[in-house]
Structure formats: C-alpha cells, structure tokens
C-alpha cells in the first residue's frame, strides 16, 4: 500500500507537482502495480547475480582525441531563455 503521504514524498523526489486528484489516483494505481510486481517474490533469487546489460559490454574505449562538436549556436538554439551565450534560469539562491 502506497498512501497519499508517500505519493507526495515520491512526487517531490521526482520534481513532479501533482494535483490532489492525481495524488489520490496514483496512491491506488501504484499500490495495485506494486502488488502485482511482488509476484517476483515467488522466485528464488538467493544466489543469482543481477543482470544490468544482456550483452557482454566491457569498457568501450576510444582514442582521446578532440573532435568537432556542436556549435554554441546549435546548442543554444532550443533554449527557452538565453543570455550572453548561456542558458538563463530563475534565481537559484533564495533570499532569507
């Protein structure tokens, strides 16, 4: 069971703002989904090594050479706000 307080806590971790209606809905739906996935407890995985990637990928190296990269103009093209060739954002440091 994931209660509404937990839903609000998770939403905060995920930087999501939810309406009260969404909080209520997700509390029920996430509880249902978590109940379903707990099915995995039926399988014994005591001595099993976890798999992150299904193909054997070892360190993939390349030569440390400078290559052409995107121009500043292209990088900033989609910026919602920009100033002096940088992304502009609202104030980060809050006043007392």
């Amino acid at each position: 069971m994931i209660n509404e307080e937990e839903v609000r806590y998770i939403a905060d971790l995920a930087s999501l703002k939810l309406s009260e209606k969404e909080v209520e809905m997700f509390s029920k739906q996430l509880s249902d989904i978590v109940d379903y996935v707990e099915k995995l407890d039926e399988l014994d995985t005591e001595d099993i090594v976890p798999t992150a990637y299904t193909i054997p990928v070892k360190n993939v190296f390349r030569e440390d050479k400078v290559k052409e990269s995107l121009s500043l103009e292209k990088v900033l093209k989609n910026a919602p706000e920009k100033q002096a060739d940088q992304f502009r954002v609202p104030k980060i440091i809050e006043e007392d």
Binding site: I2, E6, V7, L13, A14, L16, K17, E22, F26, I33
Partner: peptide, 19 residues
C-alpha cells in the same frame, strides 16, 4: 514545467520508477 509537460502515463511511470 514537468507538471505541464508530461502526460498522465509518463508521470505514473516516473512515480513508480522513483518509488
């Protein structure tokens, strides 16, 4: 931004994944 930009299913999966 995330409230306005993401639809319901995307939010649901972000919530589950974060949980």
């Amino acid at each position: 931004t995330r409230q306005q930009g993401f639809g319901e299913e995307v939010k649901r999966r972000i919530m589950l994944g974060t949980y």
